[in-house]
Structures are given as structure tokens and as C-alpha cells.
């Protein structure tokens, strides 16, 4: 019953996860690591649709993984940095801020759209429940 709300709920969860991931990526955009180890690896959200509802409509989306980007990062010449190696290089994360900001806007819009569906579905279901009220 009321499957549209559950389906939108999976969307809310997925986009909130994406939001968390983007926030983490942006928070760590300036992490400096020594060349001996990995750079901070940005995460991506991998999502798959959930198939097969009672009327064949499909049941939403699920996060199936959080793959990471490359561990090599970007090599930067910064000899004054305390973690710089013998040649003066450090690793920085390979994160494109404009890409992250674009994703942030997409995640926000998608979350809002799903919340909107929850609201409208609630109104529709209320109308269905009110059929015959007062007869």
C-alpha cells in the first residue's frame, strides 16, 4: 500500500547519501598526503534501480557501492611542506571543485523532487481514502 511514498523514500535516502559523499569530498579537497601513501580519494555514488513492484512499476533506487577515485591524486611541487618527499613533491586529491558543486546542485534538486513526490502522493492517497466519506 502507498508504494509511491516508499519509492520516493528510496530516492530521498540515495540523494542524501550522495549529499554526504559530496560534502566529504569537498571537506577534504585540500588534504595533503606524502607521496609514500595514497592521496585522499574522492568517492562516487553508484546507484541501481530496484525492479518489480506489485503492479510492475519498479520500486525505486538503491545505492550499490561507493567507488573511490584514483589513489595517485595530483603531484604538486611544494618543498616547504612538512610532508614533502625528497624531491619536494606532495600528493593532493584529484577533485574537481566545479564537478563537485555541479553534483551538489543535482543532488539537491533530485532530493527536492523526491520530497515533492512524497507530498503529492500523500494528497492523492488522502483523496482515495476520503472516497465515500460521510455516506
Amino acid at each position: 500500500m502507498f508504494d509511491a511514498i516508499s519509492t520516493s523514500g528510496t530516492g530521498l535516502t540515495t540523494y542524501r547519501t550522495w549529499l554526504d559523499v559530496i560534502a566529504n569530498n569537498i571537506a577534504n579537497v585540500n588534504d595533503v598526503s606524502p607521496t609514500s601513501g595514497p592521496a585522499f580519494q574522492a568517492q562516487y555514488v553508484q546507484a541501481q534501480p530496484i525492479d518489480g513492484g506489485p503492479d510492475g512499476a519498479g520500486q525505486g533506487v538503491a545505492v550499490t557501492g561507493l567507488p573511490s577515485s584514483s589513489a595517485a591524486g595530483v603531484l604538486e611541487y611544494d618543498p616547504n611542506n612538512p610532508v614533502a618527499d625528497a624531491n619536494g613533491y606532495v600528493r593532493r586529491p584529484d577533485i574537481d571543485m566545479s564537478e563537485q558543486m555541479g553534483n551538489l546542485i543535482m543532488a539537491q534538486r533530485a532530493f527536492q523532487a523526491n520530497a515533492n513526490v512524497v507530498e503529492r502522493s500523500t494528497d492523492i492517497y488522502k483523496a482515495a481514502i476520503d472516497i465515500g466519506k460521510g455516506i
Binding site: M1, F2, I5, S6, S8, G9, L12, T13, R16, V118, T122, Y125, K126, I129
Partner: peptide
């Protein structure tokens, strides 16, 4: 606690109670 799961549950429970 996953807030969106709880809100979805609360919405559905309210509708089911009405029905």
C-alpha cells in the same frame, strides 16, 4: 536513525491509520 526512512514511515503510517 535514518531521517528519511522515519519520515516515509510516519507518512505511510498516518495514511494507513486514516484508511
Amino acid at each position: 536513525v535514518s531521517l528519511d526512512t522515519e519520515i516515509v514511515t510516519a507518512t505511510k503510517t498516518g495514511l494507513q491509520q486514516q484508511l
